[in-house]
Amino acid sequence: MHRRSILAYGSAWALAAIPLTSSGNEAMNDFPLHAAARNNDAARIRKLLAQGVKVDARDASGATALLAATHANQIDAAKVLIDAGADVNAKDNIHDSTYLYAGARGHLEILKMTLSHDADLKSVNRYGGTALIPAAERGHVETVRTLIDAGVEVDHVNRLGWTALLEAIILGNGGERHQKIVSLLVKAGANVNLADGEGVTPLQHARKHGYREIESILRATNAQ
């Protein structure tokens, strides 16, 4: 993939970090459950649910209150909502779910809650990638370990033609965290010779970027 496309991909992820919710008083008035979730106000959430507010009601962005809590990594709010039956796989207008967003952002405690409440490991984001792929790219070591242990497919290819291994190398920084992630993926059976859409292998990308430690990890597996 050309550098311009890579930069556009990274910029899109950066924009995705900004929750697409209504702002100011409108959000408070029209979506009180979402506001309580963002504020980690567990008592308020319980009260609203007891009053009949639907746990999976959506705001203007299509997000549930649980996803709003996940955007802010509000663990207590997320637990109350999940315990009340909130759908961890409900997607917003840009195809983020609580499970996918928690994985991509390394919100480990919320991710673990989703995994124990029927997270769909095969669900994909707007790029056609599983939660494992952005977690690998962003250097979330424990998140990657958790997703691998949960059974997420390590060789899933997104619409950009990248696996988690490729993304960890192409969009990573070659540092210690990404080295650990490459090792985890290799140990989990990732295909080290699965090339990107242009036929470039993980080893070739590592060599191109000058990531000697990652290159060494791959060479030990007879990568080409």
Score class of each variant (00 low, 15 high):
R3Y: 13
I6P: 02
A8Q: 12
A8S: 13
G10C: 15
W13T: 01
L15A: 15
A16N: 11
P19W: 02
P19L: 06
T21Q: 01
A27W: 11
A27I: 07
M28K: 13
P32N: 09
H34M: 04
D41S: 06
A43M: 08
R44E: 14
L49K: 07
L49I: 11
L49S: 09
A50K: 12
K54W: 07
D56C: 07
A57R: 02
A60N: 12
S61H: 00
A63R: 00
A65P: 04
L66I: 04
L67M: 12
A68I: 00
A69D: 07
T70R: 00
T70H: 00
T70K: 00
H71Y: 15
A72L: 06
Q74W: 04
A77C: 06
L81Y: 05
L81M: 08
G85I: 03
A86G: 08
D87M: 10
D87H: 10
V88Y: 02
A90N: 03
N93K: 10
H95N: 12
D96K: 00
S97N: 05
Y101V: 01
Y101R: 05
R105C: 01
H107I: 03
E109T: 03
K112N: 09
K112V: 02
T114A: 14
S116I: 05
S116T: 14
H117K: 15
A119Q: 08
K122G: 15
S123K: 10
S123F: 10
S123C: 11
R126K: 15
G128P: 09
G128I: 08
G129P: 03
T130I: 10
P134M: 10
A135P: 01
A135M: 04
E137L: 14
G139T: 06
H140C: 06
V141A: 09
T143S: 13
T146Q: 14
T146A: 15
D149M: 14
A150T: 08
E153Y: 09
E153T: 07
V154L: 13
D155E: 10
H156W: 14
V157T: 14
L160I: 05
W162V: 04
T163R: 06
A164S: 14
L165T: 07
L165Y: 11
L166S: 11
L166G: 10
L166I: 06
G172T: 08
R177E: 15
R177K: 15
H178G: 08
K180C: 10
K180I: 04
L184W: 03
L184A: 11
L185V: 04
A190T: 01
V192N: 01
L194T: 01
A195H: 06
D196T: 05
G197L: 08
G199S: 12
G199A: 07
V200A: 03
L203H: 01
L203Q: 00
Q204I: 04
A206D: 01
R207W: 05
R207N: 14
H209S: 11
H209N: 12
G210A: 04
Y211F: 15
R212C: 07
I214A: 03
I214M: 10
R219Q: 14
A223C: 08
A223I: 02
Q224R: 14
